[in-house]
Design a protein around this nucleic acid. Structure first.
Ligand SMILES: [Mn+2]
Ligand SMILES: [Mn+2]
Ligand SMILES: [Mn+2]
Ligand SMILES: [Mn+2]
Lengths: 218, 218
DNA sequence: GATTTATGTTAGATTTGTCTAAGTTATAAT
DNA sequence: ATTATAACTTAGACAAATCTAACATAAATC
């Protein structure tokens, strides 16, 4: 259907425009490590295919069709990550690069089987929702750890803006999804937090770190 | 390292030249469904990369380097097929197309893990040997069922020239690797065989079918 | 408001992998 | 030995995805 390359553009646009609903050509070029004119000509091509709305000098938006296509690739990506962690024993910091390749496989039965073997999971190993077969996806309304107060007890529900390094950082501290965390103290000057979990562990987390951890209050 | 396209050429050349040690440009073009000039220019390119020996109007041979590269791709292909069958519940007739894509993934840890989870298998689901990490592969010296005589009892060891259709044909008859087969009768005119197995089953197999079944005598 | 800077566009070149059309060489048939 | 056929090669075109260099527009700064 679409080329490997086009799929990566769709996914990049989808992710970059998640908050604002639109994205600049420049941001796409940074994300995909391509020069601006390359992005520019691809936008024209995707516009012809009715995957993006494109007008000169204006930000780029995905069409409904584009959003659906992107979601279905993200579905394959996240199902793959879950399979790699749950069924193949990889760490959550190892799976993104592999999924980045497997997401482009053309084989409905392969992803059907993964889905079934996993018991039709709703989230990936980082807590992100897995779009359904029609491309629909909904984020459960978690809040950022950074927006919680001293005394709150929360459960770690998702990690956003994941990088392998940040995930390794969490590994070292024994921080994993589902963990019950108690906020002991919030430093006023830099908004860093002292948190405790697993009965014994106590750790300091910087504001940037707390911004990337989504939690549910309990 | 090499492109997806180049990898498919290497594999095609390796497989087509397995018996004679060389292959014509025409055979490659048929196998890969490409026109002759396309193959011709790729041969020049692969020759520059020292992956094939190429001289005008002569058959094509892989260099040692080319053989090794091809074997390592075949290794990934066969490990994948074994994983799909053993760990994901696919039938042996479903896995080739998927493996055809996964074999191109660039991720040593992914194939390492598959290998480990399978317990370092020596053969794929069709009985073909899996090359080792250095690209070495050896066929155990099986014989074709077609070369056996009435009265022989054999064990089904491998299926060659597999197609999904032939594998489904074997499925329907309950013929699978490891099965003990007794040759009841060999028809002189067309070399078809009457065989029995699993205590009750009796089937007639044509010569073409018997040519594709490798067995070990017991 | 004018100027500078950042962002976006156009034009043209390049690489990879494919094709068709035309010509060449080798093999098979007469 | 000619001729016909099949296999192979060359030449030139093309689409996809990228780039650089030059130009245009929008935004930010002065
Ligand atoms: Mn990921
Ligand atoms: Mn990708
Ligand atoms: Mn196969
Ligand atoms: Mn392949």
């Amino acid at each position: 259907m679409h080329s490997y390359t086009e799929e990566n553009y769709l996914k990049a646009i989808f992710n970059l425009s998640a908050e604002k609903g639109e994205v600049s050509a420049n941001e796409i070029s940074v994300q995909l490590k391509l020069k601006m004119p390359t992005v520019n000509s691809m936008m024209k091509k995707l516009a012809v295919k009715k995957l993006v709305h494109y007008e000169s000098y204006k930000p780029i938006k995905l069409t409904e069709k584009g959003k659906k296509e992107a979601s279905l690739i993200i579905r394959k990506h996240r199902l793959t990550e879950m399979f790699l962690v749950q069924k193949m024993g990889f760490g959550w910091e190892e799976v993104h690069e592999i999924a980045e390749q497997i997401e482009h496989l053309q084989s409905p039965i392969f992803f059907e089987r993964i889905d079934a073997l996993l018991g039709y999971p709703k989230i990936d190993p980082h807590g992100s929702p897995i779009p359904d077969k029609t491309g629909k996806m909904e984020w459960i309304k978690y809040e950022k750890l950074s927006s919680c107060k001293a005394g709150d007890t929360v459960r770690l529900a998702a990690v956003i803006h994941t990088t392998d390094e940040f995930l390794k950082f969490l590994n070292i501290r024994g921080l994993q999804l589902g963990l019950k965390i108690k906020i002991k103290f919030v430093e006023k000057f830099d908004s860093s937090m002292i948190v405790s979990y697993n009965k014994s562990n106590t750790e300091m987390l910087s504001e940037t770190e707390c911004e990337r951890l989504l939690v549910e209050k309990i």
